[in-house]
Amino acid sequence: MSENTTAIQVSPNKRYSQYFWRSWAIQDSWNYERQMNMGFLYGIAPTIDRLYPDENDPEQVAKRKEAYERHMAFYNCTPQTSAFVLGLASSMEEEYARDPENFDPETINAVKTSLMGPLSGIGDSFFQGTIRTIAFGLGTALAAQGSMLGPVLAMVISAAFSIPITWYAGKFGYEMGNSFLDRLQSGTMEKIMYACGIVGLMAIGGMVATLIGITTPLTFSEGTVVLQDILNGIVPMILDLAAVMGMYWLVKHNVKTSWLLAICIVGGIALSALGILA
């Protein structure tokens, strides 16, 4: 129980302002492979560092390494709503440090994965769909009349929604985690894992069907038979499913990441240039 005595304490406001700024900075290393994974790690790193501060204690260093590795997993969420996930995951990390025997750390990533789909959906449609349309619709109308107030108003409206929502999302995530995890028994954990698995996997399935968009331009019999139409008639988005299942098979068979990236880039350009897929 060395964790109990060594963990560094900070004021709630310091914690919440870290969730706030680090959620906003979550896209700083956005990439096609694991997307915002390093952004999430950057957000939760101060929490982890406070839990395992002793760099000379091999046990603490091992725990810290394990936590850093955990948060390098694929992640993608609207920055404003992601603050909620960051707050919740931080309180789960604290709970795990307090009670490592009865807390399955895999729950943390399961909760992250199951929340990021719905929170991105809500966040993107609210901030990029609703707020942006209203703020910039108004601003553009004013700017078209030659008023500098146009861009200023658009910026003010955007910030007026973004700032409080990000702040309270982080705060609620953390507080909810504390009160909610206090009541957890080991059986409850299993239930949560099961429920998160269902929601998370269904969201991943949904992302495969809606976010990739692979098609084939191939036609036969002088263009009268369009392969894509036939495929759509069998199962819509079947090529996206096939691509993910193919990659999944390779990942499961421990094919090296560098090979997989080469397959994606070189193979992708070749397949596209040959007119097989697009």
């Binding site: 492979e33 694929f74 495969v208 990942v251 193979g267």
Partner: peptide, 11 residues
């Protein structure tokens, strides 16, 4: 698109 498929397969 293939890289996105790869990311989702990791998940």
């Amino acid at each position: 698109k293939l890289l996105t498929a790869y990311g989702l397969s990791l998940l």
